[in-house]
Amino acid sequence: MSLELREGELLPDLVKSPTTRQLVQYAGASGDFYEIHYDQEFARATGLPDVILHGLLKAGFLAQLITSAVGSGGVLRSFEVTYRGIDLPGRPCRCRGLVTAVTDGIAELEVWTEDPGGTRTTIGKATVQLPEAEAAAG
C-alpha cells in the first residue's frame, strides 16, 4: 500500500506512546547506553527533568512515518532531523508529515514530532524518489 504523494498532502499521523521500557529496548537494540535515557537520577544530575527519549528513536519514528506512507515502491534518498526539544516517556509523541513539493519524480517532505502541547520537538526533511508510474502521473 502506498500513498499517492501530492504537494500539500498530509501523511497519516503516527502516534507513539513510548515507555521507559521502550527506551531500554531501544538502548539495547541501538547500542546507545547513555544513562539519560533510562537512569532518572543520572538524567536529573545533568539538568533534565526526567529520562528522555533518544533523539534517534524519534528519528526512527519519523522514518517509519515516511516509509509506511510511501510504501515499498518509493525510495528514500535523504532524511534529516534536528532535535529541538525533549520528549518524556509516558506522553504521546505524535509524528506528522507534509508533502511540500513533487518535482521530476522526487517528493520533498517535511516531518516533525509534536509533544502533547503541540510543540514541535523534532523537525526534519526527507526526499523520496517516487515509483515510475506515480512520477509520470505526478
Binding site: 545533568t46 533518544h54 528519528a59 534518498r77 535523504s78 532524511f79 532531523v81 534536528t82 532535535y83
Partner: peptide, 13 residues
C-alpha cells in the same frame, strides 16, 4: 559542560 545532547542527524541513502 555536564552532558551530551543530540543535535541532529542527516542520512543520505
Amino acid at each position: 559542560g555536564k552532558g551530551w545532547l543530540n543535535g541532529g542527524d542527516r542520512f543520505e541513502y
